[in-house]
Structures are given as C-alpha cells and as structure tokens.
Amino acid sequence: MSAISEKLYRRRRFKNGVALVLAGAATLFGLFWLVWILWTTLVNGIGALKPELFYQMTPPPGSDGGLANAFFGSMLMSLLAIVLGTPVGILAGTFLAEYARRSLLGESIRFVNDILLSAPSIVLGLFVYTLVVKQMGHFSGLAGAITLALIVLPVVVRTTDEMLKLVPSQMREAALSLGVPQWKVTVQVLYRSALPGIVTGVLLALARISGETAPLLFTALNNQFWSVDMSGPMASVPVVVFQYAMSPYDTWHSLAWAGAFMVTVFVLCTSLIARAIIARRKVAND
C-alpha cells in the first residue's frame, strides 16, 4: 500500500518537474527569437548608423545619405494620426464604458471595434485610398495620417473602455450625489483616474503605427525629398525600408536595416515607457 503511494507520489513529482522545466524552456524559446531578430537588425544596420542618418535625405543608389525626410514624415503623420484618432477613441471608449455598458448597441460597437483591431491594415489602406486619395486627386501625407488614425482608433477605444471600467463605481456615485453633472464627472473625475491607462493605450497605438508599411504605400506614397506639405506625397520610414530592402544596391540595403533598427528601438522604448506607466499606477493603487 505505502509502496504504491510512494511510487505514485514519485511519478507525480516527476511529472511536475518535467512540466515546469518545459515551461521554463518555452519562455527561453520566446526570448530566443527576440534576441535573434534584434541582433540581425543591429548587425546589418550598424554600417548606416551614423549621425548622417538623422540629417541627410534619402539618397539615390551609390551616394551617401540618411533618412531625415523619412523620420520627419513618419513623425508628422504619426503625430497627426494620434491627434485625430485619440479624441474620437477616448469619446467612443467613454460611450462604451459609461453610457452603453450593457446595451446591445454598446456590445455591437465593442465587437466591431475588436474586428477593427485585427483587420489587416492593407484593407484599411485601400478604404482610405478610395475615400480620400481618389477624391483629392493626389496622394498625400494627410491620407496617410487618416489611415494610421484608423489603426490608432480601436486601440484607444479598447484601452479607454477597459480603464474606465476599472474606476470604482463609488467614485462616480460620490460625485453624482454631490449634484455634479455626468459630463463633468466623466471629464474631471473618471478621466483623471484613468489617465495613466489611456496614455498607455495611446503609446501602444503609436508603437503599432510606427511599423506600418502596406497602408501608407497607397495613401501617403513616399517622397525622396524633404517635405512639410501634408497635402502632397510624404516619406515614411517603413516605406523607405521596404523599397530599399527590395533594391539591388548595398548602400540602400544597409540604410534599410538601419531604418528597421531605429523603428524597432523606437517601438521598444515606447512599449517600455507604457509599461513603466502601468507599473507606477499599480504601485500607486496598492
């Protein structure tokens, strides 16, 4: 009897050990790819990682140059996308969390928002091409920004919705019982306490749009010159990376990898900042 239970116990211990080792191995497996991919971009891009990268324009093949116009274009379009997408996203998120929490309309919008969240971005690019580029009669940084805003939107809606739901209802009730109108409660009480979460959402959205290639090709096109004209074609880092990576020339290749490396570093920094904000908030709540 006791021999059997001893055997059973050992088998259970053994099974447990194997499972936990496998769990650790799975984690190493995930980290392995991260390191490998980051290492690849760094090794290939290091040749072009010079100060010129930030103040020279995209060069023709064989000449030296940088990605200044692409960095600037990406920055401008991403900024405008955030400016366009964030307010609408926060308002829609507010609607879901505060006004339509259990209604059919609210649930349908939440569902549609989730589809938008994972819709292939090339499809959104085609949509904006028909809607904006064809109507305006030319490619423009503005159309690019609108496409990116459509990608920002669902991310912000989702996080605002989640964050407002986390605000304890006592806060709403306390404010409402003092006779404060609901919009003021929302803006001055709820937004204030959900702010870190919403900022995180915006940063995540920014990280997501910095690497978008396909939807920009048919909306913002690209520009080999310095341009601040949002109504004309505009350069962006991912599109330049794509075009240079597909070319035969070595100088273009290393610029492409350097651009890829910079985008990745930027995205990683943004995510880390977002994470730090969440972490600080959690500490504050404890």
Partner: peptide, 25 residues
C-alpha cells in the same frame, strides 16, 4: 442638462463613428 445631453451626443457619435468606419470598410 444641456451640457450632459451635448456630451452624450458627442460620445454616442464617436461610438457610432467606430461602427461606421468598419461597416464602410
């Protein structure tokens, strides 16, 4: 009340915009 109503329209409009964007696409 007016402000509340306005705010309600505003957020509802934003919510419907999300719906319209995907349906449109």
């Amino acid at each position: 009340r007016r402000a509340d109503r306005f705010f309600r329209y505003l957020v509802t409009g934003a919510g419907l915009f999300v719906l319209a964007a995907l349906t449109g696409a």
